[in-house]
Design a protein around this nucleic acid. Sequence first.
DNA 1: AAGTGGTCTAGACCACTAT
DNA 2: TAGTGGTCTAGACCACTTT
Lengths: 254, 254
Amino acid sequence: MTASDRRNSRPNTIDRTSFEPAYSQLANILKAQIAAGAFRPGDQLPSEGQLCRTYGVSPMTVRRSINLLADQDVVATAQGRGTFVKRLQLGTAAFDLGELQNLFSDERTTSVRLLDARIVAAHERAANKLAVSVGDNVIYIRRLITTDERPAFYHREYLIYDPRRPIVESEMEITSLSGLFSGSGSAIVKRADLAINATLMNEEEANLLQTQLPAAAFLLEHIFYDFEDRPLSWGWFIANSERLRFTTTVGIQD
Amino acid sequence: MTASDRRNSRPNTIDRTSFEPAYSQLANILKAQIAAGAFRPGDQLPSEGQLCRTYGVSPMTVRRSINLLADQDVVATAQGRGTFVKRLQLGTAAFDLGELQNLFSDERTTSVRLLDARIVAAHERAANKLAVSVGDNVIYIRRLITTDERPAFYHREYLIYDPRRPIVESEMEITSLSGLFSGSGSAIVKRADLAINATLMNEEEANLLQTQLPAAAFLLEHIFYDFEDRPLSWGWFIANSERLRFTTTVGIQD
DNA sequence: AAGTGGTCTAGACCACTAT
DNA sequence: TAGTGGTCTAGACCACTTT
């Protein structure tokens, strides 16, 4: 398939009988033209008025198409100047945890084993993260998540322990990790702060994850907040780097 | 600040004299109400017609506000049923390389040292990635990226070597990594496939990055494609995990 | 002054879901 | 049947940039 083939592989008119909305069709037409090289990075796209006349759609529809492409970082708009094809920038690349969902998606082969759950006195770091005082009671939980009979994640977590707060509910919801990752999500968690790091496994982690030392691992740290913006839980997953990888594509995709 | 304070911290009417567009104001009003608990996960938002009357804006403007919130995964729309507040789902969390930009952003303290650049015969893996034959000539480049006098990244890369293709240009552009990460980007690269992994450093990497073994590192692999969809370059960055960390927030943010 | 993108209106019509 | 979201129109007015 040559570039000129590609340029014509999609009709360059809007099909009004199609189920695909006009704004989406137009966005795809323009993106295909860019992908085929008809417009190169830095080039100016036809003005919105031009596109209205060319494709026989209203200004609002053209704008919506352009906004779609702008959201995808394919083009950039400049008021008073025009719309221009963007150059590739790696900074716009994003890795999402949807990849992690795949690991959990097959519920038949995913199991969560509770290794430990008890009340402990918060040490300084945990107290800090959970906004409680050092020595306050917190719940400490350790679990091992297994997929396909092989251990995939080791999870340690400190939970708020406060009789006045609905901790049982929250623990149940957060405990069912598959819900947080792939299911319906949590109704009492308003937001979460997440961080990913690369780390060396310690002996305990390597044992549980059935790995030889030294071994590299992903460390996914999380803090969950309730609707009062109070921390609910702080913890981290250790994931065998052999079983996890984050991939993405950035730039113009047909 | 209590929940009821928060509920009223933003006027619940559209300010027509503001520089902030009406659709954005309305989206923020609704998001603030959700964040304050006025609408909880699973709750149905007022219908679009209701919102039109309540806030005195046209249907298109209301729709744009709702679309904004839907893009942010704050709400989900269901045709014929209504608009509902979403529960938190970790799968929607995304880590972007913008964090990496920060490392490169201060150009005064960032330098790229070329360690090696020569023409070699492609081994099987490189040939595969670059879609050439084993034994074909490719350019092999090794560089060390330093910020604040400390080594941050070790980069190895195989580049297409084909007299008929604008390799010099491409090499220049890809070589100036700061451009790809934080600058204007590349005009000849159409898209890139990226992958992040956690890995153990080998001896050479630890030496260059001035780290003691054993050490964990991020491995960022890349393949760049030109506008003919042909691979231009395959390579990977090794980053000291001490200096790099990806963070994000998911859920409802005020 | 002319051309560009940005916002907004006040409807219309359609598809889908519930009752 | 009534209510919901989804698309689309044919303009209007504004802010900005270029000539």
